[in-house]
């Protein structure tokens, strides 16, 4: 089932001088056709300014198309009466965890969303419990968010979104400010939500090694989707990615260097486990 679809989506930002006169327009999203199936794990890559965040903001009706249409679970985002339903369908997690947490204690923060939706109290507590358990933060439910690590805060933000039972969660660089273990925690939580809870995940990131588990990767450049495919298909196009100011995971790079030196291993190796498996099954010492 198709959960999200964009057709000829364009978004223009209007630049103005101090008197409010228009001085120019920037087309941040320029004719994007995108289709996301329910239950998929999707990643979006692209350089700074390529339009990723603008595109993401269209998926839960923070921004509206200048031209074209966005449908979320069949609802047109341009129709004002759909806005609240769309935001409950597609939740959003942002880069800075400190800007997203409002509660004094963790469970209160996670309960805030469902409470706003008018969910009965008993059910709110059920949702808080299942959401915190889904991201592995249940034992911290009585803690103050201010004292948590970055990765823990970001998982609380994710729990706050899933407590609203969205069908889809859009994460805009959720790991940019985290240390390596914080990144691991957040990516693990996102994968678990997708695997176990069947929540559709759309992940925007600059870390190439975070997208290797996706069903599909989209690469954006200058407002357009310029590549799409499985992680294996995307990361074998190293030179093309460089042109778009992107990269490949370090392991894929190592596989590339080994192929260049004459070893017979596939080009689309994406993880340490896979590379070791390929090497030890093809070569013996």
């Amino acid at each position: 089932m198709e959960l999200i679809r964009t057709k000829d989506l364009k978004h223009e930002y209007i630049k103005r001088d101090e008197n409010g006169e228009e001085t120019g327009r920037v087309c941040a999203v320029d004719g994007v056709d995108l289709s996301v199936e329910a239950g998929q794990f999707i990643s979006i890559l692209g350089s700074n300014g390529s339009g990723k965040s603008t595109l993401a903001s269209h998926l839960n009706a923070i921004l509206f198309p200048t031209e074209g249409t966005v449908w979320v679970d069949g609802m047109d985002t341009k129709d004002q009466s759909n806005v609240w339903d769309i935001r409950q369908t597609a939740g959003m997690v942002f880069q800075n965890p400190d800007n997203q947490i409002i509660g004094q204690i963790v469970e209160e923060d996670v309960g805030f969303g469902p409470e706003n939706m008018g969910i009965p109290t008993a059910q709110i507590w059920e949702r808080v419990e299942e959401s915190l358990k889904a991201v592995g933060m249940w034992e911290y439910r009585k803690h103050s968010p201010g004292r948590l690590s970055g990765g823990q805060k970001q998982r609380v933000s994710i729990a706050g979104v899933i407590a609203m039972h969205p069908k889809c969660i859009v994460m805009d660089e959720p790991t940019a400010m985290l240390d390596p273990s914080g990144r691991r925690e957040v990516i693990r939580a996102a994968r678990a939500l997708n695997d176990v809870e069947k929540v559709t995940v759309i992940l925007i990131t600059h870390y190439m090694d975070e997208v290797i588990y996706s069903d599909k990767v989209f690469v954006m450049d200058k407002g357009k989707v310029v590549m799409s495919g499985t992680p294996g298909e995307i990361f074998t196009e190293r030179d093309k990615l460089k042109q778009y100011r992107l990269d490949v995971p370090q392991v894929t790079m190592l596989a590339y260097e080994l192929r260049k030196r004459g070893l017979d291993i596939p080009a689309d190796v994406l993880s340490s486990e896979d590379l070791v498996k390929e090497l030890t099954s093809r070569y013996s010492i």
Partner: peptide
């Protein structure tokens, strides 16, 4: 490093895994 919330470069991890499979 892992216990401190850090990690090693991916290629270091690959070689450690190869070593545990008996590669010298």
């Amino acid at each position: 490093l892992k216990n401190m919330g850090l990690s090693v470069p991916q290629v270091t991890d690959v070689l450690t895994r190869l070593k545990s499979k008996g590669w010298p």
